[in-house]
Amino acid sequence: MTDQDNKAPREKKKVFPARMFKRATVVCPSCLVRFKEHADQCPNCQFDAHRSVEQFQFDPPVMQRWMDNAKVFGAPVRQEIDQIIDRLTKQFPQVSLSICTVELDDPISLSEFGFWMMNACRLEDGQNSDQRSWTILLLIDVKRGLLSLTPGYAIEAFMDDADWQEALKMMVPDMIARDYRLSLKGFVKDAVQLLRKSAQEVMQSVKHN
């Protein structure tokens, strides 16, 4: 790492289009169809936020770093993972990572659930709504062995779906072995690397522009 530090975003006034970086297309969290344009409703399945609220009619929790409903991460594991996440947030102060374990039943779509959580969950004390849009939510359904990633609007522009898909796939072997600690640790390390890679690319793109 160089000693050059990127200064606080408030000094940067320029707003770039998301498609300039990694967000050329958008995906419907319900039908997972990819579109070039964003819309109020999915052109394919008419999915929107209202439908998700109707689907998940319970009190949304506070969005925190750890939401271990399935109780698979003990305190020592959390401490260990926290150290890596702290390194991530130190290098990328805007970004926050939330980990939520659930035990859902079919046919609940995990990506829809993630969409609902990201938009419905209450803010943590001291957190503002902008910070929610810089959050990456990792959902782990331990009952069905499913994983999903839901980014906020601000950070999604810098996340290549293929790279992050690969990072999720790397979790699978340890998930099958029910070694959630290793599974998550690997993902968080990968997340740090992916953000670094993205930062380098963004710096180049911004420089050329």
């Binding site: 969409f115 849009s133 499913l146 906020g152 979790m171």
Partner: peptide, 17 residues
């Protein structure tokens, strides 16, 4: 999109099942 305030969701999923 989808009238959502903070996130438009994502399509990044994996299945170990």
């Amino acid at each position: 999109r989808y009238q959502a305030p903070f996130s438009g969701g994502g399509g990044v999923v994996a299945n170990s099942r």
